[in-house]
């Protein structure tokens, strides 16, 4: 068994600090998910409407967010807003804003894709059965769309959780930053600690994302 330097995790409050860091990462990403998914659904539906102007606007928003690296967005919101208007946004708030904007943009495109992938004949058959537009949406279109959306949106949610590793650049001490602090504080006494600590971080991210994947799998099975 190679020396993984795992003993550093048992020193003082290190384990509690690591878990606290994980909670910070999860709090930020899950709050952003909770806001961005509903907003993304609404925007996605709007994108399928036949209004060129609305479409162009949403397209612009989506492409802007998609092209910009998240790191740049974080710097723009955290430092840029202070430079431009003197707002003193905290690192956590800035992270939630960026992750929400990003999540909503990506979600809207997923919803648009799922909606347009429903074949025309589904609408026509519903109409032939004498269903109203509302009935068609509730009984035919939405259930099929939701089923298609589940794997895609789970992918987005787990990506949002993992991308919180960037927010240490705007001063938010999350799980990765805590792990770097632990490794560096013990650089001399346990030079191998990097392996053990990063391994633990890997496990923590896994434990955070895995239940979400499980839930998605179960839902997919239930509705198939």
């Amino acid at each position: 068994m190679p020396d993984l330097g795992l003993e550093v995790l048992l020193k003082g409050k290190n384990l509690v600090r690591l878990l606290g860091g994980l909670w910070t990462a999860l709090r930020i990403s899950l709050l952003s998910v909770a806001i961005s998914l509903p907003v993304g659904v609404v925007l996605g539906v709007l994108m399928t409407r036949n209004n060129r102007f609305v479409k162009a606007l949403l397209r612009l928003y989506l492409e802007f967010i998609r092209i910009m690296p998240q790191m740049v967005l974080l710097f723009i919101v955290y430092f840029g807003s202070t430079r431009a208007f003197g707002w003193d946004v905290s690192g956590e708030t800035a992270s939630v804003v960026v992750f929400t904007l990003w999540g909503a943009a990506e979600m809207s495109d997923l919803v648009r894709g799922a909606l347009t992938s429903i074949p025309r004949h589904q609408y026509e058959s519903a109409e032939a059965l004498g269903m109203s537009r509302l009935q068609t949406s509730i009984f035919i279109i939405i259930p099929q769309t939701v089923r298609r959306l589940i794997p895609l949106s789970i992918n987005l949610v787990t990506r949002m959780i993992k991308t919180t590793s960037l927010i240490l650049m705007i001063g938010v001490v999350e799980v990765l930053k805590v792990s770097q602090q632990i490794i560096e504080a013990n650089r001399m006494s346990s030079p191998n600690a990097a392996f053990g600590v990063y391994l633990s971080v890997f496990l923590l991210y896994f434990l955070a994302c895995w239940p979400i994947s499980l839930l998605a799998g179960r839902l997919e099975k239930k509705w198939s």
């Binding site: 550093v8 020193k11 003082g12 409050k13 001490v173 770097q180 632990i182």
Partner: peptide, 17 residues
């Protein structure tokens, strides 16, 4: 710095040192 031992780092009790 919170991860540059021994200039600025956080010890095992979460205190800056």
């Amino acid at each position: 710095f919170s991860d540059k031992n021994p200039f600025g780092y956080v010890d095992e009790n979460g205190e800056y040192q």
